[in-house]
Design a protein around this nucleic acid. Sequence first.
DNA 1: GTCTATATACGGATAGAC
DNA 2: GTCTATCCGTATATAGAC
Lengths: 254, 254
Amino acid sequence: MGLPKLVKDRKSPRGDAGQRTVASDSICFDEFERLVGVTKRDLYRETLAAHRKVIRIKGDERAIRNLERIFDAALRISNASGFQAMSMRRLSKEAGLSMGALYAYFSSKDELLTMLQDQGRGIASRILSDRIQASADPLSKLRTGVRTHLYLTESMHAWFFFSYMEAKNLTGPEREKAVRSELQTEAVFEEILREGQEQGIFMDKDRRLTASVIKALVQDWYLKRWKYRQRNISVDRYADHILEMVENFVVRQK
Amino acid sequence: MGLPKLVKDRKSPRGDAGQRTVASDSICFDEFERLVGVTKRDLYRETLAAHRKVIRIKGDERAIRNLERIFDAALRISNASGFQAMSMRRLSKEAGLSMGALYAYFSSKDELLTMLQDQGRGIASRILSDRIQASADPLSKLRTGVRTHLYLTESMHAWFFFSYMEAKNLTGPEREKAVRSELQTEAVFEEILREGQEQGIFMDKDRRLTASVIKALVQDWYLKRWKYRQRNISVDRYADHILEMVENFVVRQK
DNA sequence: GTCTATATACGGATAGAC
DNA sequence: GTCTATCCGTATATAGAC
């Protein structure tokens, strides 16, 4: 779609940052950010493109700037006290636009919810798939998959948190999209495990259940971010820890 | 506290139910339910006792019966679409009481939230601690801890789900209580790991991080219950799977 | 104790001036 | 394009009958 290529270059030589014990074939978060660069502007540009017809603003620049204000404020308020509890008055205040101006960017609070939900999905799953496919063997796919997912949630934390917490309040097609997205990410890990088992590199554990568990571990990172931050656990440290655990469990020992 | 002793008897001989690979020293869910029997009535009786002064109902029996209706309906509606989105009108309808009658059991919607939040905490942490302390060595404490937590979330699923999802919308002392409770459960697992390391049974992994990860795995069971149910994964199967993974990671091999 | 009816406020959304 | 002022529905909470 009309998005600048986000995954610019797929390999970096990397001299390891130090105490890493596992998965030394993978990049660390700093490199990820430099390389992939999921910028807000890219996100908002894509959102604008997707909803061009309902947004009654002519110039792209102004539209993107205001979308950024609106969405940032909406995610901030919602993540602190729930989307339902967020009043449009407060949103208008914190976004720095009047009520009337707000409604030039969506036609109802419900549509705003849809826009927020849709926002990150495409970009996140695209980056994940791209980076996994760029890896050669199942083990490095596993490592890249876990790390990339963690790094994505770090770059787009507010969106992932919102997306998770508000999912259960969705109805109809929006709910289905959310469920499908959840299952699809899981399927990505399941497929990696299948490949590994086929090649005899991984042990014959229940693939689907193992994939669910991997997803749970990855999700905990953004669900309990306050806790990990308080304890000064970096995303790389967390990645190392859960990868060690997962590899212990699935990789066949020589 | 004024609650009938819930953990009646700590041991059952048990002849294993079959394909269990790990943790065969622990009871299964059916036995747990029979043994521990966290009944709704116990829960509501305790809630009533804790809020006796604000509840303007004389007889205990009637009060408990109505509390049960109210709370069941409140959890059902909230877990489907959020506490904030639940109107008192709808609650009154689904609980089978009029608006006026509802307000005899609490003085505001906010107080209802507090009551719901408080409800399960005491009972859950008490059962968890009791059963862990009844185990002898660190390994069986670990197994019992994980299983008991999973079984508790199975018996009181609606409450655990509600408690998790609405926690972020709390403010002031209620929020603090929720955070403390989360950290306290984690500390229980951390302590088990410490004991195990001290005795040389467990490996020297980061205890706190490992405890966090164990908690994440346990929580996923009730957060994604729809998914596991759809796939016919029983709580015992899930318990076996994550215990195998955790033990692989922490138990020192002979 | 429980009901129906209602007071009062706040929510989302829009009209019309600039 | 953005603002202010306002419409109107629905929310919480309570008063008063039975």
